[in-house]
Design a protein around this nucleic acid. Structure first.
Lengths: 109, 109
DNA sequence: CCGAATCCAAATGGATACTG
DNA sequence: CAGTATCCATTTGGATTCGG
C-alpha cells in the first residue's frame, strides 16, 4: 500500500486521492453514462439522472471538465447545443466504474 | 447497463446504489485499511486517517457496521478496547477499492 | 437550450466537553 | 479508550431568476 507524504507531512492515500477526484455523489454516474452512450447533450444527461438539480449537475460537469475527465463542446447555434463526452483520461476511470457497477447490480435488492 | 425501476418510478442505477453505500468520504479508506491490516482498534484506525475528526470517524464506522461491511467487537475491560474488522460482505467491496487504489497511485502527482 | 447568479434551507464537519 | 452530545461555522443543495 503506497502512502506518500504530502507537503504538510500528512499521509496521502491513493484511495483518498481517487475519492477526491470522483467521489462527488453524481460524478461516477455521469462518467458511466458518458462511457456507455458516447456523447450526450446537457438535457439528455439530465434526464438520465433523475434527482439531480440543475445547479448541481452544472457544477459536477464543470469540475469533471476542469479535471480533464470530460470534454465539453458548445455549438453557437440557436437554440444552443452543448455536448459532453469522455476524454482519454476519463476512460482510465472505467475499470473503477465497472467494478462499482458489478457490485451494485449484485447487491441492490 | 441495468437500470431497474424503484417504487417511485425513478430509474435506479447500480452505480448510484454503490455510491450510496460506500460513497462517504472516508468509507473506502477505512475499508481499505481494514482489508490490508485485518483488525484495527479505534485509535489505530484514527491514526491511519489523519484529517478525520472524532465525530465523523465514529459516524462512518457506525454506518459501515449497520451495513454489515465491518464487525465491531467491544471488550469490557478497563481501559476499554474495541476492534474493527471486515465482514465477508465487506470483502466483496475489495475489487472496487483495488481499482481505486491502482488509479490513484498512477494519477496522483 | 445551457448555465451563471442569487437567496435561503438543510446537511455536514470541527471543537469541545462529558460519560462509562 | 471509545463513544456520545452539544454548539456553531461552513458547506451543500434546491428553487428561481436572469442572460447569451
Amino acid at each position: 500500500m503506497t502512502t506518500p507524504i504530502d507537503e504538510n507531512g500528512k499521509l496521502k492515500c491513493s484511495i483518498e486521492y481517487t475519492m477526491k477526484k470522483i467521489g462527488g455523489k453524481w460524478k461516477p454516474v455521469i462518467l458511466w453514462h458518458l462511457g456507455a452512450d458516447g456523447t450526450l447533450r446537457y438535457n439528455e444527461l439530465r434526464r438520465l439522472l433523475p434527482g439531480v438539480s440543475h445547479k448541481v449537475l452544472s457544477q459536477q460537469l464543470k469540475e469533471l471538465e476542469e479535471d480533464r475527465f470530460i470534454d465539453r463542446v458548445s455549438y453557437n447555434t440557436i437554440p444552443p447545443k452543448v455536448e459532453y463526452s469522455m476524454t482519454d483520461v476519463g476512460r482510465t476511470i472505467m475499470p473503477i466504474l465497472e467494478q462499482m457497477h458489478i457490485w451494485g447490480a449484485e447487491h441492490q435488492s
